[in-house]
């Protein structure tokens, strides 16, 4: 499969935090879910890709070209939502349309007003009077209205109630009806990602832990609950991490390395993330 975006060896040093050799890809036609704790480096990675943060090293390719060399027109093929709303709060949606016309080379007013209509966003009200969910929808409406082929979304559903989140996920599914479209989406709310994403990209402490097809993850890992002695019988390589409880231990294990006699449960993305970050190692 062709890659829509490729990131290789991205590095950035801040005081007290650094991105180390971040590499991953976003295949064309796929949704990549970007997970990790707060401060793990998701936003910094996304900002580095978009050129908001000057990376110390690394190669970023989008649509087969180096990011640094692409012009405005091509950058407009990327739609973004960057966590907090980044739009002029004093304006209403009509004003915004007038301005975006000049910002994006491919601005599609009709699409924009359709989105606004679908989200039931009032056109004459100032953005600062909108609720958080509504603002997030405005951001997304803008991102979807300039013929973007790649969406880079940093926490687009943060702080939204389940209904609003579902509406946004719905919209993303619609966007993905076109096979040429791709999404890189970071989120805390793993259940959103669990549905939508084809790949999971997991970052911890500025390093990529893995990028894996989501279905493979659930096939590869399982949760094992047993006594600690029994856990020790396993090959240490097969145990990703474990939690010690009062009545036994639970561990995330690699299924292909664990004998059949150990009964495991399905591991969700949340389990996988938690054991990787907080689990004890054998």
């Amino acid at each position: 499969m062709q890659d829509c975006m490729r990131v290789k060896g991205l590095r950035k040093n801040f005081k007290g935090f650094s991105l180390e050799d971040v590499s991953f890809r976003v295949p064309r036609g796929c949704v990549v879910g970007f997970i990790g704790e707060n401060g793990a480096g998701k936003s910094t990675t996304i900002k580095s890709i978009l050129g908001l943060v000057n990376a110390d090293a690394g190669e970023i390719e989008v649509f087969g070209k180096r990011m640094r060399e692409i012009g405005r027109e091509e950058k407009n093929r990327i739609g973004t939502v960057l966590g907090e709303t980044c739009l002029p709060e004093n304006l209403n949606l009509k004003d915004l349309d007038g301005i975006m016309k000049y910002i994006f080379t491919n601005w599609d007013s009709e699409k924009y007003f359709q989105c606004a209509d679908r989200f039931c966003l009032p056109l004459d009200k100032k953005i600062k009077d909108f609720s958080r969910g509504m603002r997030q929808k405005v951001s997304l409406a803008v991102a979807l209205s300039h013929k973007a082929e790649l969406l880079i979304l940093d926490e687009p559903t943060a702080g939204l109630d389940p209904v609003a989140r579902d509406e946004i996920i719905d919209l993303l599914y619609d966007f993905m009806q076109d096979e040429a479209h791709s999404i890189l989406i970071s989120s805390h709310i793993l259940s959103d990602l669990e549905k939508l994403c084809d790949y999971i990209l997991f970052i911890h402490d500025g390093r990529i832990i893995f990028e894996e097809e989501k279905d493979m993850l659930t096939e590869k890992y399982g949760v094992l609950k047993c006594t600690e002695e029994r856990l020790r019988e396993l090959d240490p390589k097969s145990v990703v991490g474990f939690h010690r409880g009062e009545f036994g231990v639970s561990a995330l294990v690699k299924l292909d390395l664990v004998p059949r006699s150990f009964v495991t449960e399905k591991a969700g993305i949340e389990d996988i993330m938690l054991y990787f970050i907080r689990g004890e190692r054998i």
Binding site: V31, M176, Q177, K195, L196, C197, D198, K214, D215
Partner: peptide, 19 residues
């Protein structure tokens, strides 16, 4: 139904449906 439409309806990923 198309793979992508089905993925949307079932709320699952495209790759899963494709498989």
């Amino acid at each position: 139904p198309s793979i992508r439409a089905l993925a949307k309806e079932l709320r699952i990923s495209v790759i899963t449906t494709k498989r």
